[in-house]
Write a protein that binds this DNA or RNA. Structure first.
Lengths: 137, 137
DNA sequence: ATTAAGATTTATACCATTTACATAATATCG
DNA sequence: CGATATTATGTAAATGGTATAAATCTTAAT
């Protein structure tokens, strides 16, 4: 199988023209599961794609999110992070080392009367200390 | 009972000197359950407290959050919203009218092996359509 | 009351993330 | 190949937030 073949197919299946940059950004999200910021993506891919502009990273991520291939997640409040769409899960942010982990969590159960609400997305964010940082305290 | 008496006591109990502005901002969070942004608080209270500066709103909110009287919540990703601390609950954001509702949700259950993690905070954010907007679609 | 010390508030300037927009480059299709 | 739509780029500007230092208000001791 050719490199980036999966990304190519995925993009096409959503009706997105698979430009090189789009393929690389999607690939980055799929391979590196670090919930990168725009800046991290730009810095990393910019080393190889020398003409890459930050605006393009913004545009591409916006497109991927619109088409359901990626998700924007709000962790710090000042900047967005992105991840490839991979089903429902929560995020754990360590306050000490700032790492962000995917964690499996139970589906959220409403306890109110939720008659009439239409739910499109659910996000769970846990904050605390990861095992490593917790141990060294 | 005097006006703002509760806010006064609450601030003192946390060792915060109850300046007028602090009392008013805490009061605003307690009375108006709209999860306001800094700007909304500034606009509203600034009508009465004419010398109010935005920096003060930032500083005061930061203090209230540090002392556990308020919480900062990330909904839009570009700006923070604030609410008075009132126990665990989730937030529902309507994509149509942008309202934010408090909703009762079940406690989150981890499904991973979470040995060693220290949990300090949990946030649940649901996105979709509120009953009113859902009906008119 | 006066004054000094310290806390609070204000104003200004600054930084970073993100978006808007006009332009240039590239791919696609006849 | 040439025309057209799509994609990528660069500049500049809008926006949220922070840092800093000056001004103001409180508090308490004299």
């Amino acid at each position: 199988m050719k490199k980036f073949d999966a990304e190519l197919k995925t993009l096409k299946s959503k009706g997105i023209r698979p430009s090189y940059i789009r393929v690389r950004i999607l690939n980055y999200l799929l391979e590196e599961r670090i919930h990168p910021t725009v800046d991290e993506i730009y810095e990393k891919l910019g080393k190889e794609i020398l003409t890459l502009s930050k605006t393009t990273v913004y545009n591409t991520l916006k497109l991927l999110v619109e088409k359901g291939l990626a998700k924007a997640i709000n962790i710090e409040g000042n900047e967005l992070r992105y991840e490839a769409e991979r089903g429902f899960h929560g995020h754990f942010k360590c306050q000490e080392c700032d790492s962000i982990y995917d964690i499996a969590v139970s589906e959220i159960a409403f306890m109110d009367d939720v008659e009439g609400y239409l739910i499109n997305d659910e996000q769970v964010l846990i904050t605390g200390l990861c095992p490593q940082c917790n141990k060294s305290k």
